[in-house]
């Protein structure tokens, strides 16, 4: 692993009286998948939301690509540009990340349009590549999104996230709520694409088994803080923090 592509320092998000994310610092290295685990309510999704500009953090900094200005200090136009050109996000459920009033292909094309793709045939070509990549049949491209299964909709989300060749990919529980076989297929797909394209990825999951498959390093979050950080096999086989020991001993 070379340099960090993303450095987060003291990221904090406070809602009224709750501290959702409490002074989180970490680095994401070029080409790695970094796992973030913890139970619901631990602040994992809020953390990703801040980095993808869905949520405005209360304080803290994040540096992308050795830029010396934190991404949170950018103006809204610069933020939009970063989000459209450099980042991809896959939300926990298709409803959060996709527009159900348009076709499945239209959803992916939307991301391309935002990244200034203008030529119709180029967009069609890119869609075809992405659909093939995601093992989605091409005749699903022009049908309403709502006619697709949950697993397919999740693959549309991934296709959308990858459409602009992002440098950083955020995955928020990308496989929860799916059948085991669909889940395995999706995980395998994510792994292959990540290895091929070497996209630096943050994977948020409450499922340690999912993280074990994909991530080499992992952060464990509890009540907004990182309680332990380590190599994935070390976290699973020799957890240090009482909370991590509880988590590991709760794996079915």
């Amino acid at each position: 692993m070379k340099e960090p592509i993303l450095k987060v320092e003291g990221l904090t998000k406070i809602y009224d009286s709750t501290i959702a994310v409490n002074s989180i610092s970490f680095a994401l290295y070029q080409g790695e998948i970094l796992g973030i685990v913890g139970e619901s309510g631990s602040g994992k999704s809020t953390l990703l939301g801040c980095l993808y500009f869905d949520i405005t953090p209360t304080s803290g900094k994040a540096y992308l690509n050795k830029e010396n200005r934190s991404i949170f200090e950018l103006n809204s136009q610069e933020k939009r540009k970063l989000r459209n050109f450099n980042m991809g996000m896959v939300y926990q459920t298709p409803h959060l990340g996709l527009n159900f009033d348009i076709t499945s292909g239209g959803n992916v094309a939307e991301k391309l349009l935002m990244a200034n793709w203008r030529n119709y045939s180029d967009i069609r070509k890119r869609l075809t590549t992405l659909f093939e990549r995601m093992e989605l049949s091409l005749d699903r491209m022009d049908v309403p999104l709502s006619t697709l299964s949950g697993g397919m909709q999740q693959r549309i989300q991934i296709a959308k996230a990858l459409a602009n060749n992002p440098e950083v990919l955020f995955l928020d529980e990308p496989t929860s709520g799916l059948d085991l076989s669909v889940q395995a297929r999706l995980l395998d797909l994510i792994k292959k694409i990540q290895q091929e394209l070497k996209i630096s990825t943050i994977l948020v999951s409450h499922d340690l088994k999912v993280v074990r498959l994909l991530a080499e390093r992992v952060l464990v979050m509890k009540e907004g803080r990182i309680v332990e950080a380590g190599l994935t096999d070390q976290i699973l086989e020799d957890p240090q923090h009482p909370y991590t020991q509880l988590l590991v001993n709760s794996i079915l």
Partner: peptide, 9 residues
């Protein structure tokens, strides 16, 4: 050997 591989700290 797990310590050498750092699976154990």
């Amino acid at each position: 050997i797990k310590c050498i591989y750092r699976t154990y700290l």
